[in-house]
Write a protein that binds this DNA or RNA. Structure first.
Lengths: 243, 243
DNA sequence: TAGACATTAACGATGCGTTATGGTTT
DNA sequence: TAAACCATAACGCATCGTTAATGTCT
């Protein structure tokens, strides 16, 4: 027969924990001394061992209680349910983790990060999650890691300059099949190709994204300015190139 | 300016949640009507959007509060810490999940599962985790899935019979290099090879396991009976085979 | 005046840590 | 008698759901 502090140091639990297990009925000592001291016998110690085994799997105390009080069959059922719960929790936390990492990447890539950036970045992330499959996202992330943040910043800069050049060309009334404009179209095709990495699926999803949300909704959170007329002009330049 | 239920349905939160955020100081409405009604203005709505963005990443409300009240830099730090926390939590839960799955496998493989089985199974699992690397464990699990539970049961049965045969041979005083005993040695080598899958690292770890814990400690929780003399006899039979 | 909407206040659930207060054993 | 050990009781943490009791707008 063991007093509470002996059992505590033997099991590695605290006295408080054992008292807690008593109070919730998970492990009631089989005996009490005259003064009311808790006295644990061998069966209690065995039960504690089982409790700790299940606790080490992350089961809740109430589930452990249910498992132990009923038979071995219900134990298996409880474990199956527990495994399913864990699976679910892991999936959700991985979601959170990738989103957090994505957000961090975007915030770090932001030259002048502000509180507003959070929302823009999250908007972008949500749009991406909507149009790209998890595998595609994984692929994009891997390639983003490979090229490194410098190149990404640089590409952003190049897009900004490209839009400005297009806008200039449009203002000057240059024809979409003029050599100058076709040079811009070629440049934008190469930037897009760098993004898609030649993957047809990603190119398709990118198209769906612009189709579904509209160019302005897509580009604004990235910090680019875009309007209907410019977009039309750029589209016509692309079409001219493809013929 | 928005009243609380408007903001609730707009944001998808409950009224209770908004009141909670007020009471903990996370989102206090900038105004109150004469009657004490909460009135949220545009800045409040913006703040709520940021709160929801971070909450969707699984950040705690207190962390969100710290992040938003301080600058953008601390936000990045908070996100980094959050990512680390998530990483950690995921690792632990995956531990729990694999252990739970292992326990389930052992319990299901047990022909007469009892409450005592839990501890034996957990002991085995702990020993395995102690002597095999995570990669080796992964490998073992994969192969266990491949061969299926029937074959595993069958192998257990074969080991039981093999031990019985050895014991019989020992009782009859058969020499360890006699053909009959060598046939047993050969059988046990093939069973071991089936377990290791020919992987030298796993064979090494298996040796360490028996070396470190002793054959009886290893075999008893598996339901086999073993004693010093029988083990010595079997070892000598193996040595004879290797020469 | 009815009905929808607002308020504050307080318990509940999880798994104990952490006092506070006081009796028991050696 | 002091030191070590035991007991019960209660708050605290995180995030709201859920009554309860009551006041306000239309």
């Amino acid at each position: 027969v063991w007093k509470i502090s002996r059992l505590a140091e033997q099991s590695g639990l605290t006295v408080r924990t054992l008292r807690h297990y008593d109070s919730i009925g998970l492990l009631r000592p089989s005996h009490r001394s005259e003064a009311g001291y808790r006295l644990y016998d061998d069966r209690d110690v065995e039960r504690l061992a089982r409790i700790l085994a299940l606790r080490s799997l992350g089961m809740s105390l109430s589930d452990i209680q249910r498992s132990l009080n009923q038979g071995c069959l219900s134990l298996i059922e409880c474990l199956e349910a527990h495994a399913a719960t864990l699976d679910d929790a892991i999936a959700r936390q991985r979601q959170s983790l990738t989103r957090t990492a994505d957000l961090l990447n975007r915030l770090r890539a932001d030259p002048s990060p502000s509180m507003e950036s959070i929302q823009e970045a999250m908007e972008v992330i949500r749009m991406f999650e909507k149009y790209y499959s998890p595998e595609q996202l994984e692929q994009l992330r891997k390639r983003a890691d490979q090229v490194g943040p410098e190149r990404i910043q640089q590409v952003q800069q190049e897009w900004t300059e490209l839009f400005a050049a297009y806008r200039q060309a449009q203002a000057e009334g240059l024809a979409v099949d003029s050599p100058q404009v076709q040079a811009l179209a070629s440049k934008s095709r190469s930037l897009i190709a760098e993004f898609t990495g030649g993957d047809a699926g990603i190119e398709q999803s990118l198209g769906n994204l612009y189709q579904g949300e509209g160019p302005q909704q897509v580009l604004e959170p990235h910090g680019y300015e875009m309007d209907e007329e410019l977009w039309t002009y750029m589209s016509r330049a692309q079409q001219a190139a493809e013929q």
